[in-house]
Amino acid sequence: MTDLTLAALLPALESRFGPDVKVLPSRKEVLGVVQVKVDRLVEVARFLHDQGTFTHCALVSGVDWIEHIEVLYHLWSDALKGYLEITVETAPEDPHVPSVTSIWRGANWHERETWDMLGVRFDGHPDLRRVLMPEGYRFHPLRKSFELHEPEELEVKARHV
């Protein structure tokens, strides 16, 4: 199968994955915004990597929307000269998302940082440790439920881990 052109990309996604992908209104900075069901994420990522020429996973990040946690993937295509944005929603308590490190090796540390900051567990990740905070730190500071503690209180909590 030849590489997809920009015009054929989003229709191909919709026809192949049906109701599991939802094309959201796009912005001018990206080629498109696609919402994917968690179960089909790896398949969609594999399709985009192999047929969609998105060979570079530029960014993995997340947003805490309180009622759900959204994990964002920014994929770069050299052929199409643009980013595609993929979003995945998970439950805020004990969020699990399949890892895409088997497709893009560069997603490794991005997923570690998302785990560190938001507490999203990436299933299948080879080495899911914290990146920015020390091992044993108990918080995921970018969660909305994380409150800015008084320094002394935070110190006590961080040292007695």
Partner: peptide, 17 residues
């Protein structure tokens, strides 16, 4: 004393801790 990052989640509020 931690300076402007005193209440940050990652900064030691004063090295005398």
């Amino acid at each position: 004393g931690g300076g402007p990052f005193r209440t940050a989640y990652s900064v030691v509020p004063g090295v005398n801790k």
